[in-house]
Design a protein around this nucleic acid. Structure first.
Length: 293
DNA sequence: TACCAGGAGAGCG
DNA sequence: CGCTCTCATGGT
């Protein structure tokens, strides 16, 4: 029996809270276990642990230059260069205090597009369930440590195009099944080049995404922010909507267009990153102050 | 049991 | 445009 090995590397990392980052609604496949935070990055099973000044990454297959995890976690980003551009107002300062170490990941475009198509009208727990079922059903088995339960890759566009709508619905994605399949077909056929999107101006990239059925402004902005880190992509979901109304508009209900204009002007060149802080702040810290839509 | 969560799109004036 | 309804599912 061949000896299975683990591959491990430690990186310097400050101002980084893995748990906060993985539970902030931007990624759906991370699990906290006795071993650490387990997930799949760039087609590998990984386990991440951290202390005050470092993050350690462990995999079950040769890891090459490890740039794939450096890029995913955006370890080269200095937080002060981002947060220093945020407006200095009460709500923003509170959000920064409550969400210290919250980071924006840079994730695989297809996984992000597919996951957010599946996210509409679902809560984070349910999105996680659907994505997990989809990966278990149509993803590839990945190398894991001895005795570890199986881990699966996120199924690529090609794999999804081979599924019937009924098979996709069996993963509990409901009316989103045809949307996912159409997106998979567009990517697989080359009608949508996800690799090229990141090099377009944000407005054009958004238009390309919104041409897909099931992709509106919110999902498109999520993809632009999570997969390409477009700094001004600002996903306006219900939580951010509530946060903006409560914290900046005295509970009033300005129309969406006005809110979007306000956000871009007020939160600055990294408004998308600011959105991440507002989202988490409202959803986790202020969740009980309910101000209806 | 009825209702809620929470985006996109279709239909309507 | 701007409003309202529907879509599928799991949880209270």
């Amino acid at each position: 029996m061949p000896l299975k090995m683990l591959f491990r590397k430690t990186f310097p990392a400050r101002d980084y809270d893995l748990g906060l980052t993985f539970t902030s609604g931007q990624a759906f496949r991370w699990d906290q276990t006795a071993r650490g935070w387990e997930g799949v990055v760039a087609g590998r099973w990984v386990c991440l642990t951290q202390d005050e000044t470092t993050i350690t990454c462990e995999t079950a297959s040769p890891a090459g230059d490890w740039l794939w995890v450096v890029d995913y976690l955006q370890l080269g980003v200095e937080m002060k260069r981002i947060t220093g551009t945020f407006p200095i107002d009460g709500p923003m300062l509170s959000a920064l205090r409550s969400c210290r170490g919250l980071r924006l990941l840079k994730q695989d475009p297809w996984e992000v597009l597919a996951s957010y198509i599946l996210s509409s009208t679902k809560q984070i727990v349910q999105i996680r369930q659907v994505v997990a079922t989809l990966c278990r059903s149509y993803g590839l088995l990945l190398p894991v440590p001895p005795g570890h339960p199986p881990a699966h890759s996120f199924p690529g566009p090609k794999a999804i195009t081979r599924c019937s709508e009924a098979e996709l619905r069996a993963c509990k994605m409901g009316f989103r099944a045809p949307y996912l399949k159409a997106a998979a077909q567009a990517v697989d056929a080359g009608r949508l080049d996800l690799g090229a999107l990141g090099r377009l101006p944000v407005k054009q990239a958004r238009e390309r995404l919104m041409a897909l059925p099931g992709v509106g402004p919110k999902v498109a902005n999520c993809v632009l922010l999570s997969a390409y880190n477009f700094p001004t992509a600002f996903p306006l979901d219900v939580w951010v909507l509530r946060a903006l109304r409560e914290l900046y508009f005295q509970g009033k209900r300005p129309i969406l267009k006005r809110l979007l204009r306000f956000s871009e002007a007020h939160f600055g060149p990294w408004s998308g990153y600011a959105q991440l802080y507002l989202f988490h702040y409202k959803r986790v810290i202020l969740k009980n102050r309910k101000n209806h839509l």
